[in-house]
Simulated scan of single mutants.
Amino acid sequence: MDQQRYKYLKKARKVQVYNIIYDIIEVIVSLIAGFTSGSAALIGWGLDSVIEVVSASTLWWRLHGEIKDIEEQQVRKREKITFFVIAASFLLVSSFITYDSISKLIAQKTPSWSTTGVIILVISLVVNPILIWYKYRYGKKLDSKELIADSKDTFVCLYQTIAVLSGLLAVRYLDWWWADPVAAFLIVPYALKEGWEAFQNGRKISYSSSK
């Protein structure tokens, strides 16, 4: 294997490890804050982080396989699986957000203020752009469509972070009870679009030939 590619593979794998660790923290903090405050947006954001953990772990597995110099056929197979996991992740989180947001709008349920939720959202506004930049950078260096797709997955999380934070602030300071579920629902169109693209990329990969 080319030494330059090997170096970038190891760095990309390390980024995924950092991604997994931080997303686990996001999941724990945001779900506790979301269920405590009754915020549909925080809960949806936390579940999106669960999916990101699965997606990042699958991509780590794919990168690790190439680093260990497994057969090209197996690398391609892992690429295909990674794309399908990313696509399924977008679909699952979109389905939940849609259901939960509509339910909260119908019930006209106003979430309570969550200082803990706001803190983790603000931290994520700093962390996620860094992860996006490194994923996209190494995706380009390695000519890896799945790494670039994963950077888009993290961008969805960043977009959702901004929407959720705006919704919580609007409920708190403007008394817009509907802002929380609407903020969550705004993520759905973009997430479905990126999920469809990941699915299409996965379908294009063939691993019938061996190394």
Rank of each mutant, 00 (worst) to 15 (best):
D2E: 13
K7F: 07
K7R: 12
L9P: 08
K11N: 12
R13E: 14
R13T: 08
K14E: 07
V15G: 02
V15W: 07
N19P: 05
I21W: 03
Y22R: 00
E26L: 14
E26P: 03
I28G: 04
S30M: 06
G34F: 00
F35Y: 15
T36Y: 13
G44R: 00
G44A: 07
W45G: 15
D48I: 00
S49Y: 01
V50Q: 03
V54P: 10
S55Q: 14
A56E: 06
T58Y: 08
W61R: 13
W61P: 10
R62M: 15
L63S: 08
L63H: 05
H64V: 02
I67R: 03
I67M: 11
I67C: 05
K68V: 09
K68T: 12
D69C: 12
Q73I: 09
Q74K: 15
V75D: 00
R76S: 08
R78W: 05
E79V: 09
I81K: 12
T82Y: 01
T82I: 08
T82W: 05
V85Y: 11
V85L: 14
V85H: 12
A87P: 04
S89G: 15
F90N: 12
L91E: 00
L91C: 04
L91S: 05
V93S: 11
S95Y: 01
S95N: 00
F96I: 10
F96P: 10
I97F: 00
I97V: 13
T98C: 08
T98F: 11
S101V: 09
S103E: 14
Q108D: 14
P111C: 13
P111T: 11
T115E: 14
T116G: 15
T116Q: 10
L121P: 06
V122M: 10
V122A: 14
I123M: 07
I123D: 01
S124E: 02
V126N: 05
Y136L: 13
R137H: 14
K141Q: 15
K141Y: 13
L142Y: 08
D143K: 15
D143N: 15
S144Y: 03
K145M: 11
L147T: 07
I148P: 01
D150G: 01
S151M: 06
T154V: 14
T154H: 07
F155W: 11
V156F: 01
L158T: 11
L158N: 01
L158I: 03
L158P: 07
Q160P: 00
Q160E: 10
T161I: 10
V164D: 07
L165N: 09
G167H: 01
V171W: 05
D175L: 08
D175W: 08
W176L: 15
W177R: 03
W178L: 04
W178K: 03
V182A: 11
F185R: 06
L186G: 04
A191K: 00
A191F: 02
A191L: 04
K193P: 04
K193V: 07
K193E: 03
E194I: 02
W196F: 07
E197D: 03
A198K: 02
A198M: 03
Q200S: 13
N201M: 14
R203D: 09
R203G: 12
K204N: 14
K204Q: 15
S206P: 11
S206I: 10
Y207D: 10
S208L: 14
S210E: 08
